[in-house]
Amino acid sequence: MKRRKIWTNLSTAVLIATPAATQAAASPAQLAFAIEARADECLVQLAQHQGHGGAAMPATRDGEGEGGAAELPASLHLARGIAMIRGHLLIGGELIEAGRWKEALPHFLHPEEEIYASLRNDLKAYGVGPFQTTLKALSQTVKAKNKEAYARARATLEERLAAAESAVLAKEENKPYFVLETALETLQQASDEYEEAVENGRIANVVEYQDARGFVYEVDRLVGAVADALAAKDAEAMKALRASLSDLKATFPTPMPPQKAVKDAGEFLSAVSKFELQLGKFR
């Protein structure tokens, strides 16, 4: 079930077989294996999407947001990064509202530790000012469990994210479609997180479950924001999009996971692919 585990094992195997091989030299073989491994799990359809299924995970997982990053155009990469950061803020904010500061903290540290570095060049390319310290200034308020300071620091960060988002969108001709592409990319990340979270029908890793919830709800918000334009283009397809999003959201009834996982990783992925199937209709 665990793609990452397969991947890691494979790379070790390759390295053992040819001790001198660098990761780069070994990667074509790994790629083929990885795609096969995914094919076994009925992931062919997703793997075809922009070809980033196969290379989704480097041998060492150097944080989320790096998966397939190299192949994404800068616009999509940046937009996905912003969506992921917002997804983290979303779940983190829910946990704070519930008084769970300790649980919330990782979601405020992740954007800076795992996502921001990969966005640095994109931000420069789009002429958007850096906001790394804004992220850190926000997480320090969560560490301090100081709600007023948190609210202020969060508002400052939201402004930065909104500015970055408009800079990206300004250059897109078909904005609603671009938003859908961003949504799909973010859902792929959600399924990676979810896959890490479930184990034998239970949520073994609460943080990854929460990441996935944050991403899915952020996607729901993104799509909601362009819903009118999408419905004008194809009302039926829009309905189908909404249905797949409801199905995905139902995976996460509460910020803290339920006793029993609602979906297994395969079911989650197939819900994502239902979303993907509609995309072509909005091009």
Binding site: G63, K102, L105, P106, H110, K143, N205, V206, V207
Partner: peptide, 30 residues
């Protein structure tokens, strides 16, 4: 679930039941 553990801080965990436990860092789940 411990609170944020700054550099230098220590977390102690007691175990009263046998078994296998998987601990992670919530900040770096890997």
């Amino acid at each position: 679930n411990s609170d944020a553990q700054n550099p230098g801080d220590t977390v102690t965990v007691g175990f009263d039941q046998p078994g296998r436990y998987d601990a992670i860092c919530g900040v770096h789940p890997e």
